[in-house]
């Protein structure tokens, strides 16, 4: 095991392999423990597969995203129509399910990734500042946190999203953000498509940062009283240096876990919003709005909801398993 983790520098310093046992880095220990968690490894592989497939959507997809009437509506999987194979069949207006599923994966995963990343970064920053400086900063952040905790989150999220998505002009979004996101998710620059997605990311982020902030604040407050911080300060280290070099790395392990879980949270939120008809709307495909249409027709075509439903549940479970594996790997004491 040790040989795989040897870095160039330790190899140079070590005079004799017999005498010096190379120390194992923290992350390689974590990785070794993580690999033992079989379900987490399978989940990671699955997520990687879906991720790569969604990246390669334009190459893999056999049809244009929104092309209708490719085959009779609700053609079952493996239908061959006019010499072309529809691997997963077609939807209620004859669009190819497999194609739309790929593009939807790209949109849904990108949204989840940006929401979780932005929310964690914002939460980390605010939490660290509040916990480190206390005083007014802490007061403001805590009041906001209290406020966010005492509103019914999901209804508020729904109402704000529905207002902003219906009229995206209410939230001015810089052009370059629209262009960037549009290119990333292969969205058409015509119509509201890009604005809708960006608005959704923004709203979910605003509602998603509190967990990370609370966690970070608690961690920072416990770390900042420790002796090594005192030592660093007496050596003349600046606040920024102490926070970035000493405080953040110590608070990192639980944050990695919450990050993974917030990926799952963002995914389910986006799916739920689009399913309920207040998020991203057709023709922009997401697993959520595909599921919405599927349930409308499931009484006559019972197989249809499985097609968008299975990826949703697989990804949600996979993120949860990876989070669980990471929790076990990063801190065995936290094991459930």
């Amino acid at each position: 095991m040790a040989s795989t983790t040897a870095t160039a520098s330790t190899a140079r310093i070590a005079p004799s392999k017999a005498l010096v046992r190379r120390s194992e880095g923290q992350w390689s220990i974590v990785f070794r423990r993580f690999r033992r968690h079989r379900l987490a490894m399978i989940s990671l592989a699955l997520l990687a597969l879906i991720f790569v497939a969604s990246l390669a959507a334009p190459i893999l997809a056999p049809f244009p995203r929104d092309a209708v009437g490719l085959a009779p509506r609700f053609s079952p999987p493996l239908t061959i129509h006019e010499g072309k194979l529809h691997v997963l069949g077609t939807d209620h207006v004859g669009r190819d399910f497999f194609t739309r599923l790929l593009y939807a994966a790209r949109i849904t995963l990108t949204v989840s990734f940006f929401v979780a990343t932005l929310a964690t970064l914002i939460g980390m920053t605010l939490g660290a500042l509040a916990g480190y400086f206390r005083g007014i900063v802490d007061g403001i952040v805590m009041r906001i946190l209290e406020f966010m905790a005492s509103i019914p989150e999901f209804p508020v999220l729904l109402i704000i999203t529905s207002i902003l998505v219906t009229d995206p002009k209410l939230l001015p979004i810089p052009r370059f953000v629209l262009d960037f996101m549009g290119t990333l998710m292969l969205l058409s620059p015509v119509g509201n498509e890009r604005a809708q997605v960006v608005v959704l990311i923004a709203v979910l982020t605003v509602f998603g940062w509190t967990g990370a902030a609370r966690l970070m604040r608690g961690m920072v407050m416990s770390v900042r009283e420790r002796d090594f911080i005192e030592a660093a300060r007496s050596l003349g280290a600046s606040n920024a240096f102490i926070i970035l070099r000493h405080v953040v790395p110590n608070a990192f392990p639980p944050l990695v876990v919450t990050y993974t879980l917030s990926l799952a949270g963002a995914l389910t939120s986006e799916t739920a919003l689009s399913f309920l008809g207040v998020g991203i709307t057709d023709p922009t495909p997401t697993w959520g709005n595909m599921l919405q249409f599927a349930t409308n027709f499931m009484l006559t075509n019972s197989w249809v909801p499985l097609i968008p439903g299975i990826p949703v549940v697989l990804c949600s479970l996979a993120f949860n398993f990876v989070g669980d594996g990471l929790r076990d790997a990063l801190d065995p004491r936290l094991k459930m």
Partner: peptide, 12 residues
């Protein structure tokens, strides 16, 4: 880990 959305639809 499973959204109620999914369990509900699968239940139906």
């Amino acid at each position: 880990g499973m959204p109620t959305l999914f369990t509900g639809v699968m239940g139906i």
